[in-house]
Design a protein around this nucleic acid. Sequence first.
DNA 1: CTAATTGCAAACAGTTTGCAGGCGT
DNA 2: ACGCCTGCAAACTGTTTGCAATTAG
Lengths: 130, 130
Amino acid sequence: MPRKRLTKQRTAIEEVFESHHRPLSPGEVHELARGQVEGLGIATVYRALNDMVEENILRAVDLPGIAPRYEKAGLKHHHHFHCNTCDKVFDLDGCLLKPDIRLPDGFTVLSHDITLSGVCPRCSKEQPSS
Amino acid sequence: MPRKRLTKQRTAIEEVFESHHRPLSPGEVHELARGQVEGLGIATVYRALNDMVEENILRAVDLPGIAPRYEKAGLKHHHHFHCNTCDKVFDLDGCLLKPDIRLPDGFTVLSHDITLSGVCPRCSKEQPSS
DNA sequence: CTAATTGCAAACAGTTTGCAGGCGT
DNA sequence: ACGCCTGCAAACTGTTTGCAATTAG
């Protein structure tokens, strides 16, 4: 396996995750990193994201019904909130799964995913219900 | 809006949901309904599924990282189990969300989705860990 | 009969891959 | 200079849509 080089596109993508502390979609990363690197290709973003998952720098976050997101690897167990208005995803600390759940016989649970959906604070302010 | 006709392909698709009591992907529906209707096109399956959601006969079930599923509409609130081995999805009765959760200020929760993943009973038997 | 429905193929959106040139080291 | 990395375009997968032929009512 080849070793990594420090290119400006790769660096820009890493910096995007340093300055935005929430899970980002490939499109968001492209848009944000594009601010630093003129003409950054979307293929490069996908390649960098996949590489960084491989290198255990990032973790892929799959959520129901929306584009996949990526967040820094090594975070404590947590779940996510998806804003239906702006489509952004936010981290929610702690585990939201009910303890002591009982499943039918024979099911072995290896992991769980929980997503809350609704309206984020910013969108609540900007789009008052009145 | 045009009114519905009873075609054999539409009937076959409806029957698939009568005989399989778990959420099915478009591909699964196509495969299963194909047994009744020779040459059933995948576009027809997609159109039927979308129509049936529109008619409130089915509900779309989005799960993290896997193809969307469809299940009969009107079921009681519940969550899902995804078998990592056979990729089938099963219903889990009851709500698995911890009660009394606290979110940061400003977040309004409108819905939640929970997916447990692991191994289903059938796959546990067929692929013993030894 | 007559219009809704189907199957096919083309169109699409998101993601991956092949390739020639560019650029870290 | 070497070879990894990038950008572009083509390939792919899952889903939707246009259209002529088919078929339910």
